[in-house]
Design a protein around this nucleic acid. Structure first.
Lengths: 199, 199
DNA sequence: CATTGATTTGAACGCTCGTTCAGTTAGGCT
DNA sequence: AGCCTAACTGAACGAGCGTTCAAATCAATG
């Protein structure tokens, strides 16, 4: 048997994906050339095509892997009370998104650069994620803990509010992560008509 | 005297801007060529350069005009109570943004395609807009009507939540504009610790 | 009606794009 | 040690990019 597939001389594929992630997030998918990605990791452009069939698939893989990781990490404990589950979600969402700003940026900005089939796949994953949140809110409404007019609107409002953190948060900024999380936990619960324990 | 500057045979400049607006929003600035814009309005590509110095300026003008209109339309009545002013802002923001989804999309997605100087200009305008909102929230906090931990976070959270509407709203959808506005008015006020009059 | 100059055309400029591929290199296998 | 083959190079392909400009067009003016 010859070399197994995983035993690359150097691990070019992950390097390519990391470079693409950073460059796509910084300049946008359409504005980044395969040559730029290649130059960034110090190989010729032809090399990239040993590790991805084409540029579109490279983008799609980044987005799909990001969404898959997001879905795999979310955990819900339906036996706990909805307010706690909502707090857990709030902290999870903020932390997860702030840890990988490039991937988040790409997942939100480059949807229009996906082929229709690839777009449908990512969109399904996103809806799956939204359903997690809506379930918590719906349970809270059923138990009389939350009061919202429409659970779908509330779901999308909460997610939009939380994801917005990624557009302004800077690690060296005025406020620490814990402060921000607590602040958002309070705002989210209050927005849903629950009694907040925060400030 | 010959023809005055304004008496074009046809009004190509506005047509160019409208086409660019739609195409940039749909495919992204970098993915749209000047030739596509020209073809869309039925002229040769060279014609465009009679109406814009270059592609970058075309993008910048769209964004600056959008932000200028946004800033010109916002109106605040500091003598009224903050809850009312916040309701007014909520309805204004939702309505303004839903009326021009393409411009909103561009203003949020194409910032990275601006030159540093142009970016700084747009960023100033955005901060100006945010300050309007923060002023309302701060006044509400001072009067004991709102309770928030940090007015800047609250400001950005509110704006993110409201702007999120543009990503999912469809005119033919399940919920009417009035319903959505009322829903968001209630959520925004509750998020800021005010007593909501909505559901 | 002739003039004038804003407007448009159509072609061209040099450059970069995504992708392909024959040939070279080099590391793990027998 | 020598083979095998994945990985990489370097050059090439046709196509499209933003921008420029001389020549043609055309509507309002004098």
């Amino acid at each position: 048997m010859a070399r197994t597939q995983g035993s690359h001389r150097q691990i070019t594929a992950p390097k390519m994906r990391k470079a693409a992630m950073r460059l796509f997030a910084q300049h946008g998918y359409a504005a980044v050339s395969m040559r730029q990605i290649a130059a960034d990791i110090g190989v010729q452009v032809g090399t990239l095509y040993n590790h991805t069939p084409d540029k579109q698939t490279l983008l799609f893989d980044l987005m799909r892997d990001h969404m898959a990781l997001l879905l795999s990490k979310i955990e819900d404990r339906p036996e706990q009370d909805p307010a706690t589950r909502l707090d857990d979600f709030t902290r999870f969402h903020i932390r997860f998104h702030l840890q990988r700003p490039d991937a988040v940026f790409i997942a939100y900005m480059e949807l229009r650069n996906l082929t229709p089939e690839n777009f449908a796949t990512i969109e399904d994953m996103r809806r799956n994620y939204e359903n997690h949140v809506e379930r918590i809110i719906q349970d809270g409404v059923d138990l009389g803990i939350f009061r919202v007019g429409d659970t779908k609107i509330a779901t999308l409002a909460v997610i939009a509010m939380l994801t917005g953190v990624t557009t302004w948060f800077r690690p060296e900024g005025r406020l620490g992560l814990d402060t921000i999380e607590a602040e958002y936990c309070a705002m989210v619960k209050r927005a849903l008509g629950a009694q907040a324990d925060g400030p």
